[in-house]
Write a protein that binds this DNA or RNA. Structure first.
Lengths: 254, 254
DNA sequence: GCAAAAGTGTTTGACCTACACCCATGT
DNA sequence: ACATGGGTGTAGGTCAAACACTTTTGC
């Protein structure tokens, strides 16, 4: 709370005015696509993790910083999604309320009640590596199933929707998985990830053939033991080829 | 120039601070992909058309306004490209010079020498419908061949490069042409557009089959007469199907 | 009639789809 | 042994690439 006060008082001069960032952070666990959400104080609503850009800071770097602070992960897959610039997207009444409830008066923190333009980002992270951290403006920070997202503040539902649409689009011409899965994974796990993203079932055999066809995964001699039934092979991603595929895209087109 | 003075003096209060827009405007004429560029005063460099967002204006709407003012075209194909947020992208020395040369003193127009974050847009327009308009900060406004782009200010070359990459990517899963071509066009013209965007030759027969296969174009009974050689058929786009394809994408993937 | 551009069709191979059988493991 | 999940192979259809011939038109 000491920090929050500093943030309010120093924010006006420290940050690029009228500009915020919001991140849709996707994770994957036990067959479910998850999203990292914050529960706001004084509010029943949830919010995407976000923040502001320091006056001398690169915008993308600010997004990476915010993600790092929140999840503890460094080399994060993070991409710009869209700029949300509706003049009515901000809820200045809500922000004023919060400031009042926290005891700020006569214009302290006024900069927060301006109209804000936000740059939406989306990130793919390895669920198992994330160490969640709450900050001074939220009381809860947790993963929520994509299938049961609560009500979100402002236009955050719209940002989330846009991120999911983007992810579903990108999966068609970019490799996905390296950032969402642990280093070693099984083919059924990878398929389950695709199914979670796309929201539909895929054929096991065709999925495997296609994946192997891309040449992005290496089969290990190990298998995942311990589960019931036949032990599936473990795979790793071929980082070089994966990187290359990210740049060049997967299927040619023209 | 009277306008320019107003712009400088009133800009601080009228616009969202530290935020600009820049547009890569693609046109197509005589087999060449063209880009609309401005020649700046006091400078050998060229620039992308751009502008600022009024405090109560939607960001995308501002981009549309800027394009409309510049090209006279209303229903423009305009999409967000990327946010360029490097703190060093602005060239505040250059801006200060311009202000001084125009006789602004003691801090008038200081707001322009701040660090700016720009939202890049790209637009596809019908070359034949554009009526160019220069404004008070530029002396020339003209189409330049993509193959011979002059030096650009700040990071505008980077924005242009990003736009071209995006266009080449999008052409793989979106219909392109409705916005770049006149209402009636021939198949070789459409192919020539694709070749200009992709920078390589395509096979006539396969191109035509694929295009017709999408069902986005209607063949007219008319042909384009007057040219030497056999007269090619004219086509129009099927607006409904085109629109639908824009939303749903062209080839399935998963 | 000849050169140049435009219209059309066929063959080939790759890939995607749909589907069935065998194997390994825990209960 | 059996139920469940995982590994693999095959036949059929679709689509895209590669390629050649015919038609029209201006000179």
């Amino acid at each position: 709370m000491e920090n929050f006060k500093e943030f309010i008082i120093e924010g006006r001069d420290a940050f690029v005015p009228c500009l915020s960032l919001d991140c849709v952070i996707f994770g994957f666990h036990s067959g479910q696509l998850k999203i990292l959400l914050l529960k706001m104080r004084y509010d029943e609503l949830w919010a995407l993790p976000g923040g502001f850009v320091y006056k001398d800071e690169d915008v993308d770097a600010a997004a990476a910083r915010i993600l790092r602070e929140r999840t503890g992960i460094k080399d994060i897959f993070l991409q710009q999604l869209h700029v949300f610039g509706d003049p009515n997207r901000s809820d200045s009444k809500r922000n004023k309320n919060i400031l009042e409830k926290d005891g700020f008066e006569n214009g302290q923190g006024d900069w927060l009640t301006e109209r804000f333009i936000t740059v939406g980002y989306y990130a793919l992270v390895d669920f198992s590596k994330v160490e969640l951290a709450i900050d001074y403006s939220s009381e809860i920070c947790e993963w929520q199933d994509l299938t049961s997202i609560p009500s979100l503040i402002m236009d955050h539902s719209c940002i989330l929707k846009t991120a999911l649409e983007r992810l579903r689009k990108e999966i068609n011409y970019q490799p996905i998985g390296l950032n969402l899965l642990p280093a070693k994974f099984t083919m059924p796990e990878l398929q389950s990830l695709y199914e979670a993203i796309l929201g539909k079932k895929l054929d096991r055999r065709n999925f495997q053939r296609r994946m192997l066809g891309y040449g992005l995964v290496n089969r290990l001699t190990e298998t995942r033991k311990g589960g019931a039934h036949k032990a599936p092979y473990l795979y790793t991603f071929n980082n070089e080829k994966y990187k290359q595929a990210l740049e060049e895209g997967l299927q040619g087109g023209w």
